[in-house]
Design a binder for these strands. Structure first.
Lengths: 200, 200
DNA sequence: AATTGGACACTTCCCAGAGAAGTGTCAACA
DNA sequence: TGTTGACACTTCTCTGGGAAGTGTCCAATT
């Protein structure tokens, strides 16, 4: 079984990231200490460096894992309502908003404008995360609701991502209410034809 | 003419704010010095303190004036196209985006998430600015295009403001292209009825 | 009467230097 | 292989003293 080593390794990796997440969550990334991280998991500093070549790599991996979790949550929100676009959007947006409410990492991911001293990667990475979330959602919607007009779909997905990020920064009354409004808005865009007329 | 004093006073006030704006624009608010500001305009420190009781008051006034200018620009963008909703939105959003591109104050106004060390007021005030911009735009649209459904209008205005702010943070290819996309999106929301059906 | 310059107490910034603590690497060891 | 201790190097952190900034008061000036 040549996989044994790998399994141990990824297990260690997960435990390291768990510990790192906890430390970052309540003391911030710059207060994270490599020595403390190693001892928290019960390994030497060297094995930590064997897994992550630098502290920056830890931040990078932490960021990536959190992003993936977020995207998985969104997908699950969509999956739960394949027959109802509005409910699907509401579930996904609601999930993201509540997650961001208590997860400082996710929050920073979507809001960092640069130079806020948090993680250097976030500056560059937040745009990448944005694009990734948009691309994934777009692909999903294309597959799940092929009847939606492509132009409308693209605008709707972009609006969904941006409005969600906006509500993370400028929070509304409650995540649920925000999600409801965003879902309403997104559905209106998605089902538009671009040939509507003003009533007279 | 009892107004003479007042005129002089507001004139002085404007000149002080002009000088303050220039100083803040390239050195930042915290590098602004009251003594420097006074001498730049050619008055003593005392007359400056007679006009603005504190440095904080200068920041407040500066912020307020910039916000008003921004709103005026938006109104003009709308006024220039009272017959064409799409063009009106495009003009206003385009104006705001290009303004924010070179005006650090406006940028901070719509993006500050708190504790970025810039101005303490911005933290609280950005939400207020947000609300004010939304309220003003909503009132204008209600008056200019009364045929738009109220629910759709409210969602459209909210989306317009939030999407514009989003494009300030996560800039697209160009302000014009961003404005075009936002206008397209906003028009689709504004002209929606909420009773659309998915094509089959 | 308004404006000014000087003087004031108080707070904050800035700048060294010293010491501690953290990072990343290496080699000896179990 | 993984652990341990030592290493050079960089980055915090604290300190104290001097400079500079804020906000206030007042006598002098116009």
């Amino acid at each position: 079984m040549p996989r044994f080593r790998e399994t141990v390794r990824t297990l260690l990796r997960e435990r390291l990231l768990d510990a790192a997440y906890e430390a970052v969550a309540d003391r911030g990334f710059d207060k994270l200490r490599m020595a403390h991280l190693a001892s928290a998991v019960g390994v030497s500093r060297q094995t930590l460096y064997a897994e992550f070549p630098s502290k920056e790599a830890v931040g990078e991996a932490l960021f990536q894992r959190e992003l993936e979790r977020c995207l998985v949550g969104i997908q699950e929100g969509l999956d739960a309502h394949r027959d109802d676009l509005r409910a699907a959007v509401r579930a996904s947006v609601g999930f993201t908003l509540t997650l961001a409410g208590r997860n400082p990492l996710i929050k920073a991911m979507l809001t960092s404008t640069g130079e806020d001293g948090l993680l250097p990667y976030l500056t560059t990475r937040s745009a990448a995360a944005f694009d990734l979330a948009t691309a994934m959602t777009d692909a999903y919607v294309t597959e799940a609701w092929p009847a939606i007009d492509p132009v409308a779909r693209e605008l709707a997905v972009d609006a969904a991502v941006r409005l969600t990020a906006s509500h993370i920064v400028q929070a509304g009354p409650s995540p649920e209410e925000s999600a409801r409004r965003i879902a309403d808005t997104v559905v209106r865009i998605a089902l538009s034809t671009g040939r509507e007329q003003l009533p007279r």
